[in-house]
Simulated assay, not measured.
Amino acid sequence: MSVDVDETFALGGDLPLRRLGLGTGGLVGAGYWGPRGSRAEARTVLRAAVERGVTLIDTADNYGPGLAEELVAEALHPYAEGLVVSTKGGVVRTGPDQWHVAGRPQELRAMCEASLSRLRLDRIDLYQLHRFDPAVPMAEQLGALAELRAEGKIRHIGLNTVTAQQLREALALVPVASVQNPYNLLDRTSAELLALCEERGIAFLPYYPLGSGALTRESAAALTAVAAEHGASTGQIALAWLLHHSPVLCPSPGTGSPAHLAENLDAATIHLTARETALLDGLAG
């Protein structure tokens, strides 16, 4: 018997979205630097995602840098009703795979204003602090985002790459609608954080939901056996497992390929049985 899965989640309690979204890291070059392909190709992927019913587009100001946000606006503005656009600030990229945190309140404000301009928005649905800056008190960083929220420039605040304890501390200061940490079939180091998100009704946006491609090549017997039973790819089963594993998990795998996009989104149609789910649960041992 297949396990029932709710394909939707109410972000912050008031923004309904389909749990399987699209990340935009795959639209820019290696190391999140420069273009990956043509702007037209990137726009095609973004538009195809929305046409398939995706309602969460997850981007960041340092992808490109700035390029991913520009592509989102070029392809999708004016935005369809119900489309949730999420972006991130707090990191400055200086080259391929080179970046540093920048969490002073004036820096965060400037980054948010720049994202609003590139995305052609008056308010960002979900603005995520990409990293906590260890040189700046947490209260000052979150205070800057709270001010932007009070001004109507941010609807919801999210956190990226945090511990469960950091989330508890943050929740004492501001409402938090989402967290974004690595989580997939083989990497469950954020299990405590996931449990806290389930308790508080906070969205968990797992990054590297396919293990940076490892799970599309994974040869573990359990994964390949389940994939064979469904006539699916191992990557599709890995995404389906996330949707079954917790109702707050909202994966947004990235890609620059329309075909790969379609494959990823088809994962939402796969209904795993309790036996298959248990089998996959055991992979992280």
Rank of each mutant, 00 (worst) to 15 (best):
P206I: 12
R149Y: 08
H130V: 09
G143C: 11
M111H: 15
V92K: 07
R52M: 13
A102K: 06
V162Q: 08
Q128E: 06
A144M: 08
S246G: 12
G90V: 01
G25L: 05
L148S: 14
L159Q: 14
T234G: 04
A228Y: 04
A146I: 05
T44A: 13
L243S: 10
H244K: 14
V72P: 05
P253Q: 10
E151W: 03
D97M: 08
L67F: 05
G231W: 03
P105K: 03
A221I: 11
G66L: 03
L239D: 11
L261W: 08
A139P: 14
T277S: 07
D97N: 14
L283V: 05
V248E: 10
D125R: 03
A228R: 15
E41D: 15
V45M: 07
R43M: 13
V5H: 06
V91A: 00
P35H: 11
E169Y: 09
R131H: 15
G13I: 15
L215V: 11
G13H: 15
L193G: 00
G25K: 02
L196V: 00
R155Y: 02
L272W: 01
A42R: 02
G25W: 12
S246D: 03
E70D: 14
R149M: 11
E229N: 12
L249C: 13
P182Y: 00
L67W: 07
V248F: 09
G64R: 02
R104S: 05
G25C: 08
A68R: 01
T269A: 15
G90M: 01
Y32P: 02
E41K: 10
L71V: 07
G211P: 15
L279T: 11
G25P: 07
R104E: 14
G31H: 10
C112H: 02
S212N: 13
R155W: 04
L265R: 10
A42M: 05
G235W: 00
G254Q: 08
G89Y: 01
A177E: 12
A262Y: 04
R47P: 05
P206A: 05
E218Y: 13
F132K: 10
A203R: 09
T59Q: 05
A214Y: 11
A278D: 10
L171A: 15
Q180V: 01
F9D: 06
L196S: 05
A267K: 02
I57V: 13
D58N: 09
L173E: 12
P105A: 04
P16W: 04
A164Y: 00
P247H: 14
V174H: 11
E140I: 02
